[in-house]
Design a protein around this nucleic acid. Structure first.
Length: 491
RNA sequence: GGUCUCGUGGCCGAGCGGCUAGGCGGCGGUCUGCAAAACCGUAUACAGCGGUUCGAAUCCGCUCGAGACCUCCA
């Protein structure tokens, strides 16, 4: 495959040329949501970022298998013996079955991801459906000598692991520092060392989510599912593992250790991490109580929101920042994204209406250059903000064509159209929202009204024409007079 | 406390040693019966102080400030 895509590998802290294990195949695993709450803006970022990666890899010609899990068990609320997992807690609070909670929030997640035009991954495995694989992995870890059983729970022996491997190599930590900084938490008596983590937890009597295992009735530890499912669907070694930066430690560190000893090799070749979304400079997080859900965002019903923002505005907003930078949320920034996206879409609409000029009059290599810089941006660790800047630059060319200040041959115009089509819709995954829900009847009615207004205008009956415009404005319909006649738009 | 990241014009956000990022907003203009929209043009920046260099937003040091991880989190 010919390309020079470089990706920033958290493991090496460098950009590296992307070379998959088995061309033309590429395998990617991304940590998905824990389905115990409504999806919020924070969920949108990794979903959109890795959707971009997925789309671009496919565009380059790879046959991509993209696996994104749904976490529906485990994830202890606290690392305490009596800790219960989030889903069980939510279920108890709402007096429903845990799987009901899981079903409900999974559906919500899928619904909102679809609105954001996030493509469904190739496989979306659930932790609860892979208990057998997880148990088998624990057995392999025990067999390798890196786990120990206490009272029906199984723990990973981090200190022993660190003697042969480097625990903390992904997050840049040293075990001594970790041990020195471990907080004193209660109920850790079972562990040999506070840095050890659970592979299997024996369920307390009142814990509702439980499965039988060789050690106890219980549930798997919280790093295990990703190791087990990644191995199952992508093999013992695969190309990309993605997730939020907040998962770097300890989640991904745990994954590395588990896979290493269970499979005898490092599983992941490129670790990619998206940065966080901040709100007033602080990380947005469910546990911090400052998360804005996607539903609130799309409806505008949240104290922080001055208006509703469409799914594509959110998508564009996220893509306008590089995935490894924090992205600060504000109404002003969001409004800016909304306007910018509209400008881009209007330009594309115009482009599609343009016809080529007969004579080829020095188009230069501007289109070739534009195409090249778009590829260069994406090949540079998926630099979507630079890509978008290039697309805005190209807009000037489109308007110059319209004004007749520039001429393009049929072939060149086709190339330009193809560029926008490919990059805006296929790769960035944006879509035009404006004309989405107009029925034919409405269209024809509006054409009729515009015609009537034009008649009035032709007769210079300004009172009449302004009245039509004002009345429509009250209905949220804006008339825009252009040189080619009037168009309308619903707010 | 430990580890790490970052501080760019009113706002968001690229930039990885020399060449205009881009978007939103502002200002000026074109178009227009008026208005809006649209388009064109344009100003404002690199937290501070030192250092390296012919040359620094970009490298180094210090100061100040913000944030992340170390506990579930995207």
């Amino acid at each position: 495959m010919k390309h020079n895509l470089t990706v920033y590998n958290t493991l090496t802290r460098k950009k590296e040329l992307f070379k998959p294990l088995k061309e033309p195949f590429a395998g990617m695993y991304v940590c998905g949501p824990t389905v115990y709450g409504d999806p919020h803006l924070g969920h949108a970022r990794p979903a959109i970022v890795f959707d971009l990666v997925f789309r671009y890899l496919k565009h380059l010609g790879y046959k991509v298998r993209y696996v994104r899990n749904i976490t529906d068990v485990g994830h202890l609320e606290q690392d305490l013996d009596e800790g219960e997992d989030k889903i069980a807690k939510k279920a108890r609070l709402e007096k429903i079955e845990p799987m009901e909670v899981v079903q409900y929030y999974s559906d919500r997640y899928y619904h909102f991801m679809e609105l954001l035009n996030v493509e469904r991954p190739s496989i979306e495995p659930r932790a609860s459906g892979h208990i057998i694989e997880q148990i088998s992995m624990i057995e392999r870890i025990l067999k390798a000598g890196y786990g120990y059983v206490v009272n029906g729970s199984v723990y990973f022996d981090v200190e022993k692991y660190n003697k042969s491997y480097h625990y903390g190599k992904l997050s840049g930590r040293k075990l001594e520092d970790l041990i020195a900084n471990t907080r004193e938490l209660e109920g850790q008596a079972e562990k040999r060392n506070p840095v050890d983590f659970a592979l299997w937890k024996k369920a307390p009597p009142d814990h509702i989510m439980r499965w039988s295992s060789p050690w106890s009735e219980g549930f798997p530890g919280w790093h295990l599912e990703c190791s087990a499912m990644g191995t199952k669907y992508l093999g013992e070694e695969f190309d990309i593992h993605g997730g939020g930066m907040d998962l770097l430690f300890p989640h991904h560190e745990g994954e590395i250790a588990q896979s290493r000893v269970a499979n005898g090799k490092d599983a992941v070749r490129y670790w990619l991490h998206n940065n966080m979304i901040t709100i007033n400079g602080k990380k947005m997080g469910k546990s911090l109580g400052n998360a804005v859900t996607l539903e609130e965002l799309f409806s505008g019903k949240h104290p922080l929101l001055e208006q509703a923002y469409s799914p594509m505005t959110i998508r564009f907003f996220i893509l306008q920042a590089h995935y490894r930078s924090t992205l600060d949320f504000s109404n002003e920034a969001l409004r800016g994204a909304e306007k910018g996206l509209k400008r881009l879409m209007t330009g594309i609409e115009l482009l599609n209406k343009l016809s080529p000029s007969e004579n080829n009059q020095d188009p230069g290599s501007r289109i070739k250059d534009l195409v090249a810089s778009c590829y260069a941006a994406m090949n540079d660790d998926f630099n979507s903000p630079v890509l978008i800047a290039n697309l805005f630059d190209g807009l000037k060319m489109i308007y110059a064509l319209k004004e007749g200040k520039m001429k393009l041959t049929t072939k060149e115009l086709m190339q330009l159209k193809e560029l926008y089509d490919t990059y805006v819709f296929d790769i960035l995954g944006l879509k035009d929202e404006t004309s989405a829900d107009q029925s034919e009847t409405v269209d024809e009615l509006m054409n009729m009204i515009i015609k009537m207004r034009k008649n009035a205008r032709d007769k210079k009956e300004w009172d009449q024409s302004d009245q039509i415009r004002d009345e429509l404005a009250k209905l949220g319909i804006n008339i825009k007079d252009t040189n080619e006649g009037a168009t309308w738009e619903k707010e």
